[in-house]
């Protein structure tokens, strides 16, 4: 930690991560504590997991999770978009009038989606072809707009980025879990590595569209059960 001469002394437990310029953010506290950032990050992973707890972003979760790799690629693409759009929305939050904020957010999000779309097409062409339509459709993923409108447009930049990273990680984990289960039952492999041996007969139902709905339903039931066990 760098000693700062201009900032007032803080309690020892607050590890400083970012020291914001004084006077720049009237509604924010002078600095954001590491604990707050960690809380912003972890909230999206389990307690407010977008897919399992809030039922947001279901279209890509069901469509691309035919294998663990596809789920992970889709999750990471969304993670990049949600983190970058959260950062931009937070950076310009004092410039956007409230009445036009949604169209403004949509333009910001669509810009990053286009960046991710073109980048993936250039450097991961095969993956881009598999995910196809669902890369441009990140634009209408409720998670991205939801985080921008509910969190990033009222918070300082570091917290907005951590929140975006958390929501994106939670989404990626959900997709990897869904993809792994479908791939395991459907083909007997996880990330392309054989688990049940070569003699495993493919169980195509789980790879085909109905399998996505059924696996997702069973997993939600599992989450419900877990929650009632934990006394939630």
């Amino acid at each position: 930690m760098q000693p700062e001469t201009t900032t007032p002394p803080r309690p020892a437990h607050m590890g400083d991560v970012a020291v914001l310029p004084p006077g720049a953010l009237p509604e924010a506290r002078p600095a954001t504590s590491a604990r707050e950032l960690a809380a912003d990050f972890t909230r999206g992973i389990w307690r407010e997991n977008a897919v399992f707890k809030q039922m947001l972003g279901l279209c890509p979760s069901l469509a691309v999770t035919t294998s663990a790799v596809n789920g992970m690629a889709m999750g990471l693409a969304t993670l990049v978009v949600v983190a970058m759009s959260n950062a931009s929305v937070s950076a310009v939050r004092n410039l956007i009038p409230g009445s036009v904020r949604i169209p403004a957010f949509v333009v910001i999000i669509a810009t990053f989606v286009t960046v991710v779309d073109l980048t993936m097409n250039a450097f991961a062409h095969e993956l881009h072809k598999t995910l196809g339509l669902f890369i441009p459709l990140i634009v209408v993923n409720c998670i991205v707009l939801g985080r921008a409108d509910a969190f990033a447009c009222k918070r300082p930049l570091p917290r907005a980025v951590c929140d975006g990273l958390g929501a994106g990680t939670g989404f990626t984990l959900a997709l990897v879990v869904l993809g792994s289960v479908r791939e395991l039952v459907g083909f007997g492999t996880v990330f392309g590595v054989s688990v049940f041996g070569a003699a495993y007969p493919p169980f195509l139902l789980f790879i085909l569209p109905p399998g996505a709905f059924i696996v997702m339903g069973l997993m939600l039931a599992g989450v419900n059960r877990l929650q009632s066990r934990m006394g939630g």
Binding site: M55, P210, I214, G217, L218, L220, A221, N224, R225, S228
Partner: peptide, 22 residues
């Protein structure tokens, strides 16, 4: 069943519907 109440059973039903559409 208690764990399936809410969206879980709806998703399983949607899966059956999807199976029928296949």
């Amino acid at each position: 069943p208690k764990a399936f109440q809410g969206n879980a059973i709806v998703l399983v039903a949607a899966g059956m519907l999807s199976l029928a559409f296949m």
